[in-house]
Write a protein that binds this DNA or RNA. Structure first.
Lengths: 133, 133
DNA sequence: TTTAAATGATACCATTAAGGTGTCATTTGT
DNA sequence: ACAAATGACACCTTAATGGTATCATTTAAA
């Protein structure tokens, strides 16, 4: 069971690194060198961040990415949502018939409570807060 | 993201159903009929529960399974551990080199906190508590 | 004593998602 | 002109999940 995927983890690392270098532009090549992360995968990750408005990109030589949002506004919960789908731990396992079952729905209630707690916590975690440690 | 797998879900359903019928023996065939769960998969699940001491089994005609433990002692956290491994949301994604990285470990700290909250909650959930709803 | 119903044990298969790579087009500073 | 960068995709590989099938053994009951 893993709350974060590598995608999300890479994004967090990249954003922290870029925040440290701002306002300098950072390319996928830089991140590969500095963080030892696989470049092709990193590129996909960065493109996703760009499309979602977290990063601005510059093409061509000396191109790269820069942060758009202040680090305080980049929430871990949103990054998870971006790369892994909305934070939800209780996706129904039975889309068809069994969901009506009275006896098992209490299970979902418990899961939803945990989910709510986790989400509340995750919303409080930002790139800024992670950098303070 | 899903906190429970179908395996765990099936186990919970089966245990609740068996608790309702106790001390009668319940076979995989019964569960297939009453809960409309796939029998071959259910059998594997029941065998796992038996091996772990939750169920007693009787072979032969009119055989089947019966509860061993009182429903108050069957914890959701333990069932999850049985079928999905120990509850842990922050398994390190990088077993090799990168784990030393000072900047990303704060991430794990946050995850560990959430994990602790979730685990505490899950330990309080038992088959008995689920049946009360 | 034969038979059908049950578990024990295990091997196998299918689907999906995660993680990762590769390619081609386009842009741009030098 | 050229090299370095992103944009946009198309693949590939692996592992976990969900599920099926088979054979041996046990046992109650006809």
């Amino acid at each position: 069971m893993n709350l974060l995927t590598r995608n999300t983890d890479y994004a967090v690392r990249a954003l922290i690194h870029m925040a440290g270098k701002a306002p300098e532009r950072v390319s996928a090549r830089d991140l590969e060198r500095d963080l030892e992360l696989p470049r092709p995968f990193m590129r996909k990750t960065l493109q996703a961040l760009q499309k979602s408005g977290y990063l601005a990109s510059a093409k061509g030589k000396n191109g790269g990415f820069t942060l758009v949002l202040p680090v305080e506004k980049i929430r871990l919960a949103d990054l998870i949502a971006l790369f892994q789908g909305p934070v939800s731990m209780g996706d129904c396992l039975f889309r068809k018939k069994l969901c009506e079952c009275v006896k098992t729905c209490p299970l979902r209630r418990e899961i939803k409570q945990i989910e709510a707690m986790a989400l509340a916590h995750l919303r409080g975690v930002t790139i800024a807060s992670l950098m303070k440690r």
